[in-house]
């Protein structure tokens, strides 16, 4: 069966040149950013306007740009652990209100994965160490997360997921607090599923997670993803 990499270049983009589309086109991103510029400034001297300035966005916790008054929704998302990097920005820019219900941002989102990749590539140029893009954390592409699209498409049972999640909650706090163990409550569904399969297949290495994910079936991972999705506001 054909396999698709979970990345900005999702299934719809697979026919395009893989490397170029994954990295994004900075020049095209700059043109696309015109849609954002009426509210957001980026680059030298950028200031908060209708929306927060976007310099050093990568690695920033959501809702923490200095001097900007955020919506309650964003403050909550930030305190729950939402942090901006390529994966989360991609999810946000696809449908802002899905990731942060209650955001004041009225922009409906970029439907085309390539558009999002290009805008993200443009924005990455205004964050520290742009040479790293898309290499090291926090901007690393999770290219080891190869998941069969049929597995991604599975609809999980949130009630079963809630039961299974009790195993996660011994260590991962539902408050989203991060203390030696990362928060998982705000992960986009696909990212969650891909990450769990990466642990299951030992593409991502961590003995506890390899062990726990290793005995979860595809349906169980889908159930967990469905449950954790219900935890958002």
């Amino acid at each position: 069966m054909m396999r698709a990499a979970i990345s900005l270049a999702a299934a719809a983009c697979m026919t395009q040149a893989a490397v170029a589309s994954e990295l994004g086109d900075v020049e095209r991103g700059e043109r696309l950013f015109a849609k954002c510029r009426s509210c957001h400034q980026v680059g030298e001297g950028a200031k908060n306007r209708t929306g927060p300035q976007l310099n050093n966005l990568f690695g920033r916790r959501a809702g923490t740009a200095e001097g900007y008054s955020f919506s309650k929704a964003f403050e909550r998302a930030g305190s729950k652990g939402l942090e901006w990097h390529a994966e989360t920005l991609d999810t946000y820019l696809e449908n802002p209100k899905a990731l942060v219900p209650g955001t004041r941002m009225t922009f409906a989102g970029f439907d085309a994965p390539q558009d999002r990749a290009d805008v993200i590539a443009y924005l990455r140029g205004f964050s520290a160490s742009p040479a790293n893009y898309p290499g090291a954390d926090p901007t690393a592409r999770q290219t080891d997360h190869d998941v069969d699209p049929a597995i991604l498409a599975l609809e999980g049972d949130p009630e079963y997921g809630e039961y299974l999640s009790s195993e996660c909650k011994t260590c991962h706090q539902t408050s989203g607090a991060d203390k030696g163990i990362p928060p998982i409550v705000h992960l986009p569904r696909d990212t969650f599923v891909a990450a769990m399969h990466a642990y299951k297949d030992k593409a991502r290495k961590h003995p506890v997670m390899n062990m726990l994910a290793g005995r979860l079936g595809n349906e169980e991972i889908a159930a967990l993803a469905a449950y954790f999705a219900t935890l958002e506001d």
């Binding site: 011994t170 260590c171 203390k179 030696g180 163990i181 003995p207 390899n210």
Partner: peptide, 28 residues
Amino acid sequence: DGFISHTGEDTALRKATYEESEGWYAGM
């Protein structure tokens, strides 16, 4: 199924393991 830490692990991994235990205590 099970696992155990290995002898001879580097200091960064051992520190991360300790920090993980702190996270577990808070979560637990």
